[in-house]
Amino acid sequence: MNTVMVESAAPAMVAGDAESDRQLVDQAKAGEPTACDALARRHRRAAYLLALQLLGNRDDAMDVTQDAMLRFFTTLKSFDATRRVQPWLFTIVRNQVRDLWRRRQRRPGDDIGESDALVGQLATPQPGPEADLQRRELKARVWRALAALPAEKREIIVLRDFHDLSYSDIAQVLGIPIGTVMSRLHGARRQLRARLEEGGRHA
C-alpha cells in the first residue's frame, strides 16, 4: 500500500501555528504559490484523516480531500484570514462527504458499513511501550465501535477526541449553536459507550 505512518494522531494547533497560518493565507491570497504549497502540506493530512474517519475508505477519503483542498484554494480569496484555517477546511471536507453520501443515496444517520475498514487503516505501532497489546486492542475496539455509530454521532466524537477541536470550532464545523455541542457530544459518547459494552459482552 502506498502509505506512510503519521507520527501523531492530531497535532493540536498552537497559537504560533495560527499566526503563521494567517501569514500564509495572506501570501496565498496574493498569489504566492509557495504559500499555497505550505498551507496544503500543513493541513491536508488532518483533512484526509477526517474524511477517512467519516467514510472509512481510503480511496474515497483521498478523492474527497483533493476536492476539499481544491475548494479551499478556489475560495481562499473570500476567506477571512483572522479565522482559523482548520475548522474552515473541516467544514469543506464535511460538506464534500455529505455530497458524496447524497450521490450514493446514503444518509448521515448511516454507519460506515464495513466497520473493519476503518480499523484496517490504523497504523501498526513500532515495537516498544506503544505496542502494548491491551492498548492496541482498546484502540481497535474503539474505532470499530465508532465506525458502527451513525455518521453524525461519529463526526462529533472524532472532531473532539481525535482532532482535539474546541467546542466553538466544533460548533462552526457542524453548523450548530455552541450551547448544544456538549449535550450532542455526550449523547454520542453515551452511544459509543453502549456499543463498547455490547462489543465487550460479545468478545
Partner: peptide
C-alpha cells in the same frame, strides 16, 4: 479512557 485511546491512535496516510 475512550478519549485517550482515540487521541493516541495513528492512521496510515498517503505519501507526499
Amino acid at each position: 479512557a475512550v478519549r485517550e485511546a482515540t487521541m493516541t491512535s495513528t492512521f496510515e496516510t498517503p505519501r507526499d
